[in-house]
Amino acid sequence: MNDPESKIHPRSRRSLALLTAIGLLLVAALLALGTWQVKRLFWKLDLIARVEARIHATPAPAPPRGDWPKANAAGDEYRRVVVRGRFLNDKETLVYAATELGAGYWVMTPLGLADGTTVLVNRGFVPTAKRAPATRPLGQLSGETEVIGLMRVTEPGGSLLQANRPAEERWYSRDVVAIAAARGLANVAPYFIDADATPNPGGLPVGGLTRVIFANNHLFYAITWYALAAMVFAMLVLLWRPGRPERPGG
């Protein structure tokens, strides 16, 4: 009986076995990557659903001081909250922003609460020409004010390309701890609040510009990894197909 594989030179057989082992390891790795992306897909879909529920929920009181240690991104970010207090307009901080309205600044203003604590509020966007408080006096609210918005976690350090420079009043991220230190604030919540789109007197700052967007390419990545695994496996099948011609010089 003629066995096609019996004609394969031993050295070629060893090479074939080595290629097969490497190919199977590669297939296993690609399948693992695809499965990981599937898990990430379901995690991302669950995250999107939870955030959607939060941003459309009835506003709840912002976490009080006793709950600050438990505040975190997974459980609290984008929660719709409400706080009441008085704005400390003389301690506002301008943080560089690029928005759908153009380039300008976020107006970060401390809100003093009745219990003696403070919450930083991102009151919204102002264009560069209106960065000085004197150019938007109507928006400098006084007296007790209610703020409804989305709870956000601090953004330490700066942006991807720029570090915050408090000594120069150059801010590229909403770093709660650094802003509080620069303004001499105490008992400050470890989060800040993005104010909603309720119009401010004079039209500035413009709130409600929070972008709640989550990239979700996990299905595409999963299909890609699984397709590559199938291609590698198909190549292995071809290597072992009956009647495969012997390599020259094998």
Rank of each mutant, 00 (worst) to 15 (best):
F87N: 00
L88M: 14
N89F: 05
D90P: 02
K91D: 02
K91I: 05
K91F: 06
K91V: 04
E92Y: 06
E92W: 03
T93E: 02
T93C: 01
L94S: 08
V95M: 02
A97Y: 02
A97D: 12
A98T: 14
E100M: 09
L101Y: 10
L101R: 14
G102R: 09
G104T: 05
G104R: 06
W106V: 13
V107N: 09
V107I: 06
T109A: 02
T109Y: 08
L111V: 11
L111K: 09
L111A: 08
L111F: 10
G112F: 10
L113T: 07
A114L: 08
A114R: 15
D115N: 06
G116A: 06
G116M: 08
T118S: 13
V119T: 12
V119Q: 10
L120F: 11
V121A: 02
V121P: 03
V121H: 05
V121T: 07
N122I: 08
R123A: 14
F125I: 08
P127Y: 08
P127A: 10
T128F: 05
A129E: 13
A129T: 14
A129G: 13
A132T: 08
A132V: 03
P133C: 07
A134T: 09
T135I: 01
T135Y: 01
T135D: 13
R136N: 08
L138K: 15
G139L: 11
Q140S: 15
Q140Y: 05
S142L: 04
G143Y: 12
E144L: 06
T145F: 05
V147E: 02
I148F: 00
G149I: 07
G149S: 06
L150Y: 02
M151K: 03
M151V: 06
M151E: 14
R152G: 00
R152F: 00
V153Q: 11
V153W: 00
T154S: 15
T154R: 03
E155M: 01
P156F: 01
P156W: 01
G157D: 00
G158Q: 08
S159L: 01
A163G: 11
A163M: 05
N164R: 12
N164P: 03
A167C: 07
A167Q: 13
A167D: 15
R170W: 04
W171I: 13
Y172P: 04
S173A: 15
S173Y: 09
D175F: 00
V176W: 11
I179N: 13
A182Q: 04
A182T: 00
A182F: 01
A182I: 01
R183K: 15
L185G: 00
L185E: 01
A186H: 14
N187A: 15
V188D: 05
A189P: 00
Y191L: 05
Y191R: 03
F192S: 09
I193N: 03
I193W: 11
D194M: 12
D194N: 14
D196E: 01
P199C: 10
P199H: 14
N200L: 11
N200E: 11
P201F: 08
P201H: 09
G202D: 09
G202F: 13
G203D: 14
G203W: 10
L204W: 07
P205Q: 12
